[in-house]
C-alpha cells in the first residue's frame, strides 16, 4: 500500500472510532466552560486551561480550587494525583509507540486522555504493533482534542452570560457524583468513598484546602486496607 494513503486511512479510522464518544464529551466540555467562568476564572484562563492542561475532571477541580484560593501546592498536588491514572495509560501504550521519534512521543503524550486512550488501546490490542498505528492514535486524539476545545469555548461564552444567582456552581458536585458513582464497583471502593467524604468534612477547618489532600489520602489508605 502507498504509505501516504495508508497514513490518511489510519488517521481517518481513528477519527471514525473516536466520533461516537464525542456525544458524551461535548456537553461535559460545555459544563466545564460554564463552571470555570462562574467560579471566577477569566475567559482566557478558562479556555487556556483546556488547551494547555487538557484533562477533563482535573480542569473542573483546578477551576474550583483557584476560586477557593487554595495554596499553589494543594492545587498542583491535587491535579497531579487526579491525573496519576494517566501514568497507567502511558505504561499501557508504551510498547506500541516505543519505536517512534521523540516528537511523536511528545505529541501523543499530550493527547493521551481517558477517551483517546480507551479507543486507541482497543485498536492496539487487536492489531498489535503496526508501522502506521500512531496515525490512528493521532486521529483519535486530535478528534477528541478539537471537540474539547470547541465545547469549552461554547461553555465559556454561555457561562459569561448566566448570572451567579442561578447557583450553577452546584453542577460541579453533581458532575462529580455522576463520574464517581459508576466507579464504585466493590466494597473496597465504597469504603474508600465514604472515608474520603467523612474525612473531607472533618478536615474542612484546615487552611488552603489542605483538608482535600488529607481526606483523599485517608480514603485511598482505607480502600487499599479493606481490600485485603
Amino acid at each position: 500500500m502507498d504509505s501516504e494513503t495508508g497514513r490518511l486511512q489510519e488517521f481517518l479510522n481513528g477519527v471514525r472510532d473516536e466520533a461516537p464518544i464525542l456525544i458524551g464529551v461535548a456537553p461535559f466540555g460545555m459544563i466545564y466552560g460554564v463552571l470555570a467562568v462562574s467560579a471566577g476564572l477569566s475567559t482566557l484562563a478558562a479556555q487556556s486551561m483546556s488547551f494547555i492542561l487538557f484533562a477533563g475532571s482535573a480542569q473542573f477541580i483546578l477551576a474550583r480550587l483557584i476560586a477557593d484560593s487554595a495554596s499553589l501546592m494543594v492545587m498542583v498536588m491535587t491535579v497531579f494525583v487526579v491525573n496519576l491514572r494517566h501514568a497507567l495509560y502511558s505504561a499501557s501504550v508504551a510498547p506500541y509507540v516505543a519505536r517512534l521519534p521523540l516528537r511523536w512521543k511528545f505529541l501523543l503524550s499530550y493527547l493521551l486522555t481517558d477517551e483517546a486512550y480507551a479507543v486507541t488501546i482497543r485498536r492496539f490490542a487487536v492489531s498489535g504493533v503496526t508501522p502506521l498505528g500512531h496515525w490512528y492514535f493521532l486521529g483519535a486524539g486530535l478528534t477528541l482534542w478539537s471537540c474539547w476545545q470547541a465545547s469549552t469555548a461554547v461553555g465559556v461564552f454561555l457561562g459569561s452570560q448566566i448570572p451567579p444567582s442561578w447557583g450553577l456552581d452546584f453542577t460541579l458536585a453533581l458532575t462529580f457524583i455522576a463520574i464517581v458513582v459508576p466507579l464504585i464497583a466493590d466494597r473496597a471502593m465504597l469504603v474508600c468513598a465514604v472515608v474520603a467524604a467523612l474525612a473531607a468534612l472533618l478536615f474542612a477547618f484546615l487552611p488552603m484546602k489542605l483538608g482535600l489532600l488529607a481526606a483523599a489520602a485517608a480514603g485511598i489508605v482505607a480502600g487499599f486496607w479493606s481490600d485485603r
Binding site: 494525583v81 508504551a94 458536585a173 464517581v180 482535600l212
Partner: peptide
C-alpha cells in the same frame, strides 16, 4: 516499556479518583 507498574500500584491508583472526587463532593 522498560519498566511497568506492579499490580499493587495499579490497584492503589484505582482508588485515587474515587477518593479525590468524594472528598470534593461531600463539603460541596
Amino acid at each position: 516499556g522498560r519498566w511497568t507498574p506492579s499490580k499493587r500500584l495499579c490497584r492503589a491508583l484505582q482508588f485515587v479518583p474515587v477518593a479525590v472526587l468524594c472528598a470534593i463532593i461531600a463539603p460541596e
